[in-house]
Design a protein around this nucleic acid. Sequence first.
DNA 1: GACTGAAGCACC
DNA 2: AAACGGTGCTTCAGTC
Length: 604
Amino acid sequence: MRNLSYRIKGQPVLIHVVESEQDIPQFEDWISRHRIAGFDTETTGLNWWDAGRGFRIRLAQFGNGAETWVIPVERGPSFRAVVVEALHRLEWLVAHNGTFDLHVVEACLGIPMEELAPKMWDTSLLAHLVDPRGVKEKGPGLKLEELVKFYIDQQTAEEVKGSMTAIAKRYKTTKEKIWALVELFDEEYLLYAGMDPALAYRLFQLLYRLVPIRSKERGLIGWEHRLSHVTAKLERTGYLIDVGYAERRCEELTAEEEKWKAVAKTFGVENPNSNQQLIEAFQGFGVKLTKRTKPSKNHPNGQLAMDDDVLSGVGHPLADAVIKAKKAGKWRKTWFERALNGRDSDDRVHASINSLQARTSRMSISGSIPAQTFPSGDGYVRHTFLADEGHVSCSIDFGNMELRYLAAFSRDSTMLDAFLSGKDLHQITADAAGVVRKIGKMANFLTVYGGGWAALMEQANVDEETARRVLDAFNETYPGVGAFGKKLAAEARKTGYVWTATGRRLPVDPGKWFRALNYFIQGGSRDVTARALLKLDAAGFTPYMRLPVHDEIVFSFPEREAAELSQEAARLMEFPVQGLLIPADAEIGGRSWGSILDLANSKH
DNA sequence: GACTGAAGCACC
DNA sequence: AAACGGTGCTTCAGTC
């Protein structure tokens, strides 16, 4: 046994490192005397889906705020066995981002996440319920180091955060590669590993008390945990990809990028991605550039803008080439190469779904399938993603989710009536303002976002007078919406928070009280989708679910049953808020996700 | 090489 | 009185 020690604000943390089989009984004794423990794993990387193709678990750590154990799982079956036994035995586990550890334990140690998930407490979920703001939003943050810095001790946080970087430097390698390379019994590594369960455990004790009583009473702690287990199962299932299709698009886009880069070169631009080079080139051709980016620290007046709007306005062949070259490169890397590089041995890709991420509580999807930002105009990107063999793709989306949510809670009679009697809300707004439907629609959404006339001016490309008139008309048509927004803003001004209807406390930035309405709607709508995921899970739909995308859930259904299953799923998803139904509509396509969009487009 | 801020673009 | 909410990814450019 090797014993290490660390001090957090003067309090000792004892770290026992199991070195040989003779040390195991002491660990077993500790486990037998504890019902709950902080838990963490160290692995060779983040690609848990590649267990058997190089991904390994290296260490497993257990402990509480004062004493932890590091088990060298990599050393062989007896160490694996003792970890498996401990995991079976403990009644509760505490982990930060425990979803990752669930994947690791399942893939490497064979314990199904269905067994461990129900007894796991995740400090990242508690932290979000306490304060959802990241460090950049002047909040505590959501990462372990950030939370330790905010809630426990700054010095500890910095040492833990810096340690793997320091080890990487010592090994003369990168932070990305160090996880697989570091010597298993490297003292600094053991210290880093051993501290993690202690910190998670301490955070759990602190954060649990800080979760607002109102959130607890509404059962949000358990609810968010159950939800994260559903999204963990979706991550595990993954999404089958059409490798040939993605590879063809990559080749196509590479050729496209090369072609337009060559054109840019003939105008003296080596790198179309460099705005500096572009500005220089255009000014050399006598083009007058006026649009500026927003003011920042280093550029109080903003810099000359070089976005799509500017480029398509200059009317020069270089601009056209730059737009096309940039787009081809970005699309290839972001959509197709990400999917190809992330696939497992069965050609499935596994997104990282953070079920509770945004400061409004919206989910985020990142990694190999950044699905929330997939181009939606046609199926070009989404064709990459396939329903399973013998299955078809199906998308079920909520209709007018956020606007219905707004109508339901503002109780504005015109807006409620529009939805209850199936009228066209965007047209009603347009008619009231004397503009086309498209601008009416913009005004409706702008209200959800808290935008003013200046934003409408920019977005709809109308003059100030028109923009003001449209918003005035909106306010006259739906007086209940303005009143509701004012009520939430006043509450935010008084308390600093807006509470969602689901009992979630969301901080609002000082002076930005108008955002309270958006947070209420965005957070509440997310909870409607979250509720749908839980309902679908309970009804046995999880094996068919692929991804949630804000107001939509994507499925892979067996072809023969697709019609029935999609209707059943849609009925489960639908939910009346304050008596107003948020309907769900199923669209069935062919094999690929993209085929749904193609079918929808061909209808017009 | 790692990190950060900013710009730009993809979405709901 | 005045105000476009929330994300993720890639790249550049500057700093340490």
